[in-house]
Amino acid sequence: MANLQNNLLDIFYIDTLSSGGTWLHNLDPRAKVMTTLIFVGTVVSFGKYEIAMLIPFLIYPAVMLAWAELPVGYLVKKMVLLMPFAFFIGIFNPLMDREILVRISCVDVIESIGITKLIDIIGLLDIIGLKNGIGIIEISGGWISFLSIMMRFCLTVGAALILICTTGFDSVCLALQKFKVPGPFIVQLIFLYRYMFVLIDEASRMVRARQLRTFDARANMKFSMFAPMIGQLLLRTLDRAQRIHLAMCCRGFDGHIQMIRKTDFGIQETLFTAGWSFLFIIFRLYNIPVKLGEWITKFLL
């Protein structure tokens, strides 16, 4: 029950977010769908031990969240709730793959940020024994690939959530239609989305009615009760489909659904898509964090 209500509220909330009025919301949906796909494609194209090069990609969700004025806390919470599957599969990596892949010495890190000389002067380095290699951290390949999986998860799921929160489902469908996704599938998606609200509502009313008469609000129902309830819901759904069809026929439906929508893939859309794609390619080709790190360490010492 809580399940039903929460899901409904969740979808409703995303739906509300997607009807926001920022320029990002008003951008032609094709630009956003394309950019999201390119983003996801580049992110997953890295090898499984990649971490550093994934970091720059965070700029996309960060900037998009800001531009679209989306509630960061809500989306992060949603993402964390979704994490278990990736986590449980990913957590096997550290168990299976124990080869040491990265070895970081604390001395180096300390040196690189430029306080070594200071410490050296007081001779502290010798005292704490760092120079003899005690402060070395080793990370196995498994942990690295696990971290990489989790980062991929955050980036890809984040991108999908941002897409739906800035675009709205109907507009995503419109973009898909323009991308020549077959008509029956688009109609199917639109109908599904429209009646999802109606049916979840209907289902939750049925479940509530049962709960109120079993005086046990917490327990799930028994199978013997579940089957007829689902069956009943299904029958009602079939009846509803019939009524909808009748309503469509009354207004001249003859098997085709057409919509009039004005779309405009203009300069703004081109810039948006091209700009992000360019950035993603740069991130894919050049190891920005390492370059930056080298430059910084060079600069400090």
Partner: peptide, 16 residues
């Protein structure tokens, strides 16, 4: 709900 099957009010009124 049986009659309003399109994604927006405009689409629905335009259907006929």
């Amino acid at each position: 709900d049986d009659q309003l099957f399109m994604p927006t009010v405009f689409d629905d009124v335009a259907f006929g």
